[in-house]
Design a protein around this nucleic acid. Structure first.
Length: 423
RNA sequence: GGAGGCGUCGCCUAGUCCGGUCUAUGGCGCCGCACUGCUAAUGCGGUUUGGGUUUAUCGCCCAUCGAGGGUUCAAAUCCCUCCGCCUCCGCCA
């Protein structure tokens, strides 16, 4: 949720942000009208309510006929107060509904447009030339099956399409990767967290995942809970309705969780292997900080992602996601995309978003600034490792015989230098 | 799953039985001022959060006693539902 004060004082910035996202700029005027309505009906209610309370005190003191007269008056008043209360509540709801439809104000410099209008910020490393090496690279599924590291067929048997078993060295590789990620996070001062993967509707909505992403989310109707698609959700809810202490700098959490995504509307896309699956694991960085520090913290998160990507030694690029592809809560988003040789293109491995105060405002997470006043905190998130990283590791480090060289940084955690095919 | 107890503005706590004078008591902590050679002690004042009004301030008003409903002219207080914590019983990885 954006700041109504900003919308009131600088509606043009909000309109420009909406246009860059390809969304309705006209909503700004609707909100201003609804806000006007909200305030006037609230004032009307409060005035009458004050009168009612004041007469209430007289009632308590009065006796006999005087008391009866006051009671008659205040009975009538009571009914009118109820009416005004109802209309003030309705105006507030109308206003809230409209305000929640506005995405976060994009940061200056974010490219306008949709999914394909990203700007490439940097390209790191060079893809291997398999032709020059004299062999055709296998895709991650062929490699993993050769290593007996992945069982898609039985995943489908047990849970349906887009489910899988990581097996043997596949399971070990993921655990090694996650251990490296957690070790790095702890060294950087992050507090490790293993989070709930089921959350209440309030938390899911507060984190911003019931707006545009509602189709993506699994819901457990019998219990009125949602399965989270990232530990960001639980970590955003962690300090909901709290005033947190940021006087010692940002609070940084490294969340580890299984992630669940319905992948609705992606039928036929990425059906091979574990690029796009309903369930995977992830280590996620999540930060609460002073909004004034948020842009700098965003760069730091990107830096930690890059440090982690360097550990797996794959070529990748960094893109500055276009406004229309940001999702509601993000003001800016950088994705790191690794080169996938058999696809001849870059695929997302990490994503770091600066949500500024958007999430925290809705969740009620505030801090005390230097003047002792409460202010809405900023939240940011970024990926440190996911199951999908295995795709990039396997494909980029494969050898002609189907074996895979283990990146140096993973070896101490995996206990293997090379993964060798079993068939 | 069953029975009982509890939930008050940072922490502790009074108030709930019996609705109105609660503008929620007191202590601790914290902040400011005064006093003091310094510290301590002492005294005085302040100290939930959100919103409205005004906006340079002061101020005034509304809401907030776990959450949401209800009864009533009036609810921390009475009723209902839910949540959380504690104790006991039952069941079970």
């Amino acid at each position: 949720m954006i700041d109504i004060k900003l919308l009131r004082e600088d509606p043009d910035t909000v309109r420009a942000s909406q246009r860059a996202r390809g969304e309705d700029a006209g909503i700004v005027d609707q909100i201003l009208a609804a806000e006007e309505q909200r305030r006037s009906s609230l004032t009307a209610y409060e005035q009458l309510r004050a009168e009612q309370k004041s007469i209430g005190k007289d009632v308590a003191r009065a006796q006999g006929e005087e008391k009866q007269a006051l009671l008659a008056r205040t009975k009538d008043l009571s009914a009118r107060v109820k009416e005004l209360d109802a209309s003030a509540t309705a105006a507030q709801q109308e206003f809230d509904t409209l305000l929640k439809r506005v995405g976060n104000i994009i940061e200056p410099g974010v490219p306008s447009g949709g999914e394909d209008d990203y700007a490439v910020r940097e390209i790191i490393g060079t893809p291997r030339d398999f032709a020059a090496e004299g062999f055709e690279p296998k895709d991650h599924l062929d490699l993993a099956e050769g290593l007996d590291a992945l069982d898609m067929a039985r995943g489908a048997k047990v849970a349906g399409s887009r489910f899988y078993f990581l097996k043997g060295v596949g399971a070990r590789l993921e655990m090694a990767l996650f251990n490296v990620a957690m070790q790095q996070a702890v060294a950087a001062g992050f507090v490790p967290m293993i989070t709930p993967t089921l959350v209440t509707p309030q938390v899911m909505a507060g984190a911003g995942f019931l707006d545009a992403h509602a189709d993506e989310v699994y819901r457990l109707e019998a219990d009125d809970l949602y399965l989270t698609g990232t530990s960001e959700v639980a970590l955003a809810g962690y300090h909901a309705e709290e005033i947190i202490d940021l006087s010692n700098g940002p609070i940084r959490y490294a969340g580890s969780s299984t992630c669940y995504r319905r992948e609705a509307g992606s039928y036929g896309k990425d059906t091979r292997g574990i690029i796009r699956v309903h369930q995977f694991n992830k280590i996620e960085m999540f930060v609460y900080c002073d909004p004034a520090d948020a842009a700098a913290e965003h760069e730091r998160l990107l830096g930690w992602e890059q440090q982690m990507l360097a550990n797996i030694e794959v070529p990748y690029r960094i893109i500055d996601t276009a406004a229309g592809d940001l999702g509601g809560p993000a003001a800016r988003k950088y994705d790191c995309e690794a080169w996938v040789p058999t696809q001849g293109r870059y695929r997302e491995l990490t994503s770091t978003s600066n949500c500024t105060t958007f999430q925290a405002r809705r969740l009620g997470t505030r801090f005390r600034d230097a003047d002792g006043r409460t202010q809405v905190a900023a939240t940011l998130n970024g990926t440190l490792a996911t199951t999908r990283w295995l795709v990039a590791i396997l494909e980029n480090h494969q050898q002609p015989d189907g074996s895979v060289v283990v990146p140096e940084a993973l070896r101490p955690f995996l206990g293997l230098d090379v993964l060798t095919p079993t068939r």
